[in-house]
Design a protein around this nucleic acid. Structure first.
Lengths: 154, 154
DNA sequence: CGCAATTAGTTGTTACAACAATTATTTCAT
DNA sequence: ATGAAATAATTGTTGTAACAACTAATTGCG
C-alpha cells in the first residue's frame, strides 16, 4: 500500500477497526447463541466438526483458525456440555477423533441460521459483490501476515 | 444484503473471517510491540491517551472501542508499567484524569511507527483507495450492529 | 433541600487467545 | 532396532473481553 496516504491516528488503523468490528459482531452473536448453549467461538469449532465427522483436533484447529491449546479448551467446553465426544485415534494413539453427539447435532442445526441471519443483518446495505470483495481482502491480509510470520519464525 | 447468495459454511462467514484476520494481525503486532513492553490492546489505549492529555477513563474507553471494565484493567497494566498516571478529577471526584509519563511518551513514540509499518505490510497489495473502502465498510458494519443492539437493549 | 436515579470506576466470573513448557506417541536415520 | 527429532494434545500463565454486581460521587426532580 502507498505510504503517505493515511496520517495514522488510530482512527485510521485497520488493525484497530478490525478488532472493533469483530468484537461488536461477536457480542451480538453471543447474545443470540446463548439460549442454544453456545458461545461464538464454541460455535465456530462446532461448525467445523459438523462439516466432517471424526476429524482430529489438529485438523479442527487449523480449519477453525485457532491454535491447539485454544482448540483443546473449547473442545473441553463442548464435551462438558455433551455436544461432542473424543475417541482415541485408531491409527495414532496421540490423537483424538472428534464427533458430534445427537445434542451437538441439534445445537448446530439451531445455531447455523442464527449466525447466518446475524451476519446478514450486520452486513445490511452490502451487495453480495461487496461482501465477496470484503472476504477476498480479508483473505489477502491473512496471506500477507502468514507470509511475514513464516520467515520470521524459521 | 441479498439472501440466497452465500451458501454458508463458515468459509463464507464474515464474522469468522474478521476474527481470523484480527487475530493474525494482533499476533504479528504483539511480537513486534513486546520489546517496547506493550501489548496491542495496551497500545490501542496508550495511543488514545497520547492524542489528548487528561482525558477521563470513560472518554478513553469510548475512543478505544472498549468497555469500562476492560479499560480499567488495561490502564491498571499501563500504570503498573509506569506508562501512565491517574489523578482524581478536580471537578468530579468519581473520575480519573489520565496522563502519560515520560516513559509512556517514549513507548508511544516507539510503538506508533511499529504499528504503522505492520499494518502496511499486512495490507501489501492494497491501494489506498481499497484501504479506505475497507475502513468504510467496517464502519458500516459497526453502525449496523449498534443499531441492532440499541433497540434490543431498551 | 433531600432522596432517587444516574454516572465513573472497580471487582468478580467466565470464556478466548498466545506463548511456553510438558507428556505421550510416532517417525526417521542410522 | 534404537535413540533423536517430530508430532498430538494438554497444562500453566498472562492478557483481553463481556456481563453483572457493586461502591462512591453527582444530578435532578419534587
Amino acid at each position: 500500500m502507498d505510504n503517505r496516504e493515511h496520517p495514522l491516528g488510530l482512527d485510521h488503523s485497520l488493525g484497530f477497526a478490525l478488532g472493533v468490528s469483530y468484537r461488536k459482531i461477536s457480542a451480538l452473536l453471543a447474545s443470540r447463541l446463548r439460549p442454544i448453549g453456545l458461545t461464538p467461538e464454541q460455535w465456530s469449532v462446532l461448525a467445523r466438526i459438523s462439516e466432517k465427522d471424526g476429524q482430529i483436533q489438529k485438523e479442527i484447529a487449523e480449519r477453525a483458525g485457532k491454535d491447539k491449546p485454544t482448540t483443546t479448551r473449547i473442545l473441553d467446553g463442548l464435551e462438558a456440555k455433551g455436544f461432542i465426544t473424543r475417541k482415541i485415534g485408531p491409527s495414532d494413539r496421540r490423537s483424538f477423533e472428534v464427533s458430534l453427539t445427537e445434542q451437538g447435532r441439534n445445537a448446530a442445526e439451531l445455531a447455523a441460521p442464527v449466525e447466518r441471519d446475524t451476519i446478514r443483518e450486520a452486513c445490511a446495505g452490502f451487495t453480495a459483490e461487496q461482501y465477496r470483495t470484503m472476504m477476498k481482502w480479508l483473505d489477502a491480509i491473512n496471506s500477507n501476515v502468514d507470509r511475514i510470520l513464516q520467515p520470521e519464525t524459521e
